[in-house]
């Protein structure tokens, strides 16, 4: 049962014993973005993109973050490898708070953590050959010493992701979306990282290509022993690839659960609504579909108390009073909801 202790626990002063083998731990992370108003005065308004997020990711697992667009999952993903600095909180990677690293240390640390971006079109430099784009990683980290060595390694990487090695002299615009994402994956694994953030890696691709790329990511994860944070809004994809799932809504985590449990019996009302929105061929189940009313609230002025209460079918008066903490509800999952009576 050790395997299933949710990350929410670390919040309450627990230190994860070593045998849990946590690679990444996120503690009380927030990210606020200033919004430029019409006034000349300095920023007065903030968007709360990510708010008090806590979880940890064990070595070798695929931790999936799901949520609607605007829920803060991309912002969170970028903070995990410090492409964005959190406004507050700690990102512990292998026991070290990334925020304490200086520029040079951080750059060196990037060898161990990589990211696959959502858009394979804009995330590749259009003026750089594929070989140079991948080779840059090898050069920057001093992995290969000579050009010949570098080219050989680039060819190997391209082959690993299922592209012909001759592609290295060509430019990104000569490739399709799926091929570009393969190139991006080759770039991400070039330095042999331990940790990979995949930020909606297939959502910009044709459905027919999505499965290929997902399988490639699965294969690489297994062969390289990667630890992954997989960000997606596509629940079918998450079910296929994830070990554990965290649900985000308006910058906060609503629920963390093992993947099977989550899909079988979601706890949080928002999780339930998300899952019931997935089209199903089963007539009996489709009758129970919950349709959320309204739009996701504005992150500039989130509702008081529980951020989901404005759309929650089970909301009661008390929900407006306190922000429900992410609490352990069973041995294997935690949820941020005060309506424990619903659990029965």
């Amino acid at each position: 049962m050790l395997y299933a202790v949710p990350a929410g626990l670390s919040l309450r002063g627990w230190n994860m014993p070593d045998q849990f083998n946590v690679l990444l731990e996120v503690r009380n992370v927030r990210k606020f973005f200033g919004v430029r108003g019409k006034s000349v005065l300095p920023t007065a308004k903030y968007v709360q993109a990510v708010n008090e997020v806590n979880f940890s990711v064990r070595r070798g697992e695929v931790f999936s973050v799901v949520g609607e667009s605007g829920s803060g999952k991309t912002t969170l993903g970028q903070m995990l490898i410090r492409l964005l600095d959190p406004s507050d909180g700690e990102i512990m990677f292998d026991g070290v708070d990334l925020m304490t690293l200086d520029d040079q240390q951080m750059r060196r640390a990037r060898k161990r953590m990589q990211i696959i971006f959502q858009d394979p079109y804009s995330s590749l430099n259009p003026y750089m050959t594929v070989g140079d784009a991948i080779g840059e990683v090898l050069e920057v980290h001093g992995i290969t010493k000579t050009t010949a060595e570098r080219d050989q390694r680039v060819d190997d990487l391209l082959e690993t992701v299922g592209l012909r090695s001759a592609t290295s002299v060509r430019y990104p615009h000569e490739f399709s979306g799926g091929q570009r994402q393969r190139i991006a994956i080759a770039r991400a694994i070039a330095a042999n990282p331990e940790f990979l953030v995949a930020d909606e890696p297939v959502s910009a691709l044709d459905v027919s290509v999505q499965a290929q790329i997902l399988n490639l990511i699965s294969d690489l994860r297994a062969s390289m022993g990667l630890t992954m944070v997989f960000i997606s809004h596509d629940l079918a994809v998450v079910r296929h690839i994830a070990d554990r799932v965290a649900v985000m809504y308006l910058g906060r985590i609503m629920e963390i659960a093992d993947v099977d449990e989550f899909f079988d019996r979601p706890l949080h009302p928002y999780s339930q609504a998300l899952l019931s929105a997935v089209p199903t061929p089963d007539i009996r189940r489709s009758k129970q579909r919950q349709v959320l009313s309204g739009e996701i609230a504005s992150p500039m002025s989130p509702p008081s108390g529980c951020v989901f209460r404005t759309r929650c079918p089970h909301a009661i008066e008390a929900c407006a009073g306190v922000v429900p903490p992410l609490e352990l509800k069973s041995a294997t999952r935690s949820s941020a909801c005060i309506r424990d009576d619903l659990l029965k």
Partner: peptide
């Protein structure tokens, strides 16, 4: 985006 990619590479 590709500038972000370059930063992610550790350049």
């Amino acid at each position: 985006d590709y500038i972000r990619t370059a930063r992610a590479k550790g350049a």
